[in-house]
Structures are given as C-alpha cells and as structure tokens.
C-alpha cells in the first residue's frame, strides 16, 4: 500500500452537542479493492459515510481524495469529483420512472463528456433493472429499490462507491446477487466501500475491513484477520467465527 490512497481520512472526529459520534478515525482506500465497514448498531458507520460525503462538517481531522483535501467541499461537488453513495434507507425519486432516476445520475455526476443514454442503460443492465426501467420507482419492492440505489450512484460514473447496507432487507438469493453486482462494479475499477451486517457477505466479498465501535476504530485488516481479532469478537460478533464468516 505505497501508492497515494484514492480516499483517505485522518483523525476524523465528529461531535454532536458534546457527544462524540466519531472519534479520531483513520482510513485509507486504495484502487482495485472492496472495503467493508462493520460495527454494532449505533457504532457510527452511517455517520462516517455522512462525513465523507459532506452531509455533516467534520469537528476535526481531514479527508483527502486523490491526495487533495475534500473536507468542507459540498456534497454535489464531491459527487462530481467521483464519490458516489447509495443510501441505507432507499431514497428513490418516487414519482418518476426507474430509467429517469438513473438518467439523472448520468446527466449529472462526474463532469466530462459521456453518452448519457449509454451510461444509463449500462447502469440499468449491470444492476439487472433493464426489465423494469419504465416502472415508477415509488412502488418498487425493496430488492429493486436497493438495486436502484446502486444503479443511480453508478450512473454518476464514480471512482469510489460508498454503499450503505445495500443488502438490508434482502433475502439470501438477492444478497448474493447484490454481492456479485458489487464485485463486477469493483472489476470496473471502482473502489467499493460497503457497510453491511451480513458477516458472511462481508467476509466473502471484502479485501479489507474497518471495524467501528462507539465511534472508535477498533480494528482494521483483511477479513480473516479481523474476524479473529478478540476485540472485534467481543464488541460485535459475540461468538467466534469460522473462516467463511459463519458463526461457529
């Protein structure tokens, strides 16, 4: 890990009215990998994503994207630079079609020339939404909403994709489809950072995992290492795990 990380945070801290939600967290994301972010409920995972995507200002610390400071940069600019995010709670644009949802991502997103139609169709195809592209996104079932979150973020042509629990509410088949989809996104050279509760999925798909507990980074490393880390087991897993991430 010698090259400049594509996205890195150092000493990231966030206080809400005296409560420290994120406490001096460091991270580094490098090209070509899939990262995981795990931790118990309320550990600060979504807060960290909100900080990285500029929804909240940092209390202290710094974030760099391709070596440049980006803390304080507005959200839409971050997306235009190449940081995309799929929300934990699906936020489709309900009164327009799936295709139009994705198209807005393609029309905006990273600046530079592109074929809007081609980008839209590619993102739809990659997530398996082509068949329902003309449906209104308002009434979609949860599985398709998750795909739409990913497709729309993907259409902005990011370099880094932050996916906040893309599998929440999905059944095992849908979960493995989603993981396959994230792998193929990664193969396209997009760095994926994933918040996920399904440990098996995380262990199978991620190259490197960060573990948060109560706003503090308690561990970081390859999945096999992390799931054997006693602090992680104590804080989060409760029980030791096998190499496949299944509870032993």
């Amino acid at each position: 890990m010698s090259a400049t990380p594509i996205l890195a945070g150092r000493g990231i801290t966030k206080n809400f009215r005296g409560l420290t939600a994120i406490d001096t967290v460091d991270f580094e994301l490098h090209q070509g990998r899939i990262y995981g972010l795990i931790g118990p409920n309320g550990a600060g995972k979504s807060t960290l994503f909100n900080l990285v995507t500029g929804y909240y200002p940092l209390s202290s610390g710094e974030i760099r994207f391709e070596g440049k400071r980006i803390d304080g940069v507005p959200t839409y600019r971050l997306n235009q630079m190449g940081i995309a995010r799929a929300f934990q709670i699906s936020k489709p644009f309900p009164a327009i079609t799936v295709r139009e949802n994705v198209r807005i991502g393609a029309l905006y997103g990273v600046s530079g020339p592109r074929d809007v139609d081609a980008v839209t169709e590619e993102a739809l195809a990659l997530t398996g939404l082509t068949g329902i592209a003309e449906r209104m996104s308002g009434g979609l079932p949860v599985g398709n909403l998750r795909k739409l979150e990913i497709a729309r973020a993907l259409a902005t042509r990011p370099k880094v994709l932050l996916a906040d629990e893309p599998c929440a509410g999905l059944n095992p088949t849908e979960t493995s489809d989603m993981m396959e989809c994230l792998r193929s996104i990664s193969r396209r050279g997009i760095v994926v950072w994933l918040v996920e509760h399904d440990m098996r999925a995380v262990v199978q798909v991620c190259d490197w995992i960060y573990v948060l507990e109560a706003g503090v980074k308690i561990a970081a490393g390859p999945p096999q290492e992390v799931i054997r880390n006693p602090r992680v087991i104590e804080a989060y897993l409760g029980t030791p795990m096998t190499e496949n991430g299944e509870e032993a």
């Binding site: 995010r85 309900p94 600046s111 729309r152 902005t156």
Partner: peptide, 14 residues
C-alpha cells in the same frame, strides 16, 4: 425534477 423529488439525494448525484 430531482430537486422536487428529493433534494438531499439530488446533491449526492452531483
């Protein structure tokens, strides 16, 4: 249209 539908999400799409 994106603003009408969800302004915060629109920001995240650039």
């Amino acid at each position: 249209l994106a603003i009408r539908e969800d302004e915060d999400t629109a920001k995240m799409l650039g």
